[in-house]
């Protein structure tokens, strides 16, 4: 059964353990700027939202890559950037409407969440279970519920979801 990252912003305390674990595991440094997951802060509401790639089925990044550098990891469902093939053109960074592919100026390549090959460090590092790695169907259901709520609220995005 394929798993995916499930994020519950209500449990996030902004401790940034996820960002540190991600940057250390993937880039060898404790540097949130090099993390593939980022906690966005809404100070006026006291709310913190961890955010990263959802490995979306549309895979705008993979489709847009001009040199075949992003491929599907069939085991995890992750869309994975090949450092060998990426030329750093950044088209994927503007093609991804979620903003979750980022350019790493030090390497001259792009980086994105690859689910750590099926054992995501961010989920392991999260002390409050705001980030968990669980059965994909369950998170999908949860997302659909969120979208249903959006539709009820009559937002533009929700309305087109039901179209």
């Amino acid at each position: 059964m394929q798993k995916s990252l499930h994020i519950d912003p209500g449990k996030c305390t902004n401790c940034l353990q996820c960002e540190l674990a991600c940057s250390y595991d993937n880039e060898g440094v404790f540097n949130p700027a090099k993390s593939r997951i980022k906690v966005f802060t809404f100070h006026d509401e006291g709310r913190f939202v961890p955010y990263t790639c959802t490995q979306c089925a549309e895979a705008w990044c993979m489709q847009a890559c001009p040199v075949d550098a992003i491929s599907l990891d069939a085991a995890t469902g992750a869309k994975v950037v090949s450092e060998w093939l990426c030329v750093g053109c950044k088209v994927c960074t503007i093609a991804c409407p979620f903003g979750t592919v980022n350019y790493n100026a030090d390497s001259g390549k792009v980086i994105k969440c690859d689910l750590c090959g099926g054992d995501p460090e961010c989920a392991k590092a999260c002390p409050t279970e705001a980030i968990t790695y669980i059965d994909a169907n369950w998170t999908g259901l949860d997302r659909m519920r969120q979208w249903a709520a959006r539709t009820d609220a009559g937002s533009g995005a929700g309305a087109s979801a039901s179209a």
């Binding site: 960074t93 503007i94 409407p97 350019y103």
Partner: peptide, 17 residues
């Protein structure tokens, strides 16, 4: 700026209020 810049596309194309 290069970080999270694709979201501009998302904001424009979803036409979200």
């Amino acid at each position: 700026r290069t970080d999270w810049v694709g979201v501009v596309r998302g904001l424009i194309q979803t036409e979200v209020a």
